Amino acid sequence: MFSSQAQLKKRTPENGTDRENYLSLLVDEYINTNSLDAKCQVLANLANFAYDPINYVYIRDVGVLDIFIHVLKNEQNDKLINFAASGICNLCIDPDNVEYFLNHDALKPITKLLKSTQNDTVADAVTICIYLFNSHAKTAISTPEVVQDMHNLKNSNNTIVSNLASIFLDDVSKNN
């Protein structure tokens, strides 16, 4: 459920931590912990916060986008990658976030996820590509390589992945 500023204020105790500070604490915890389980839990929480557009400014301000991009570029752990992909997927409906991803070279690691062996991650990656194609990033995401990957994914045994790839390809064919 999407929130309003009034709802956030009402749900925050008088002496409680506001949303931006809480997100900042999560970012600090992610950066400073050495525990993989803690990193996974924090990244999952950050991806969940990315679901609500009211959080987008806070997410950008405290560096969550940078963490998601860093994970895609540098991590090998499938869980971390999946949580980062989910977070990016949740954020791609916002033009400012799309611009941030474009300016921080996130397209290559996003499209690399199309070759993942994890169906949930692939589904998120295809969904990100759909959102990007339907944004001002259309030409950046509709490269021949991505279109070919989508043709391959259209034949996936995973129905969700196959259907999402078909949606992307339909969008591309309608715009050519």
Rank of each mutant, 00 (worst) to 15 (best):
F68M: 14
F68V: 11
H70V: 00
V71T: 12
V71Y: 06
V71D: 08
L72N: 08
K73R: 14
N74D: 07
E75N: 11
E75V: 05
Q76E: 15
D78C: 05
K79M: 13
L80A: 07
N82Q: 14
F83Y: 15
F83R: 01
A84M: 01
A85R: 01
S86V: 02
S86A: 08
S86M: 10
G87K: 04
G87S: 08
G87L: 05
N90S: 13
L91W: 05
L91P: 03
I93G: 15
P95I: 06
D96Q: 14
D96V: 15
E99P: 01
F101M: 10
H104P: 02
H104A: 04
L107M: 08
I110W: 05
T111K: 10
K112S: 15
L113Y: 00
K115T: 13
S116N: 06
Q118F: 10
N119T: 13
N119G: 01
D120H: 14
A123K: 03
A125P: 10
A125M: 06
T127I: 00
I128K: 05
Y131K: 12
L132N: 09
L132W: 09
F133A: 04
N134F: 01
S135W: 04
H136I: 07
K138E: 13
K138P: 00
T139H: 12
T139M: 09
S142D: 12
T143F: 08
T143W: 08
V146C: 04
V147I: 15
D149F: 11
D149M: 10
M150K: 03
M150G: 04
M150W: 02
N152W: 06
N152F: 11
L153A: 06
K154T: 04
N155F: 04
S156E: 06
N157H: 10
T159E: 15
V161P: 01
S162D: 04
S162E: 04
L164M: 10
L164S: 07
A165S: 12
A165N: 07
I167W: 09
F168K: 02
D170E: 15
V172N: 01
V172G: 03
V172Q: 07
K174R: 12
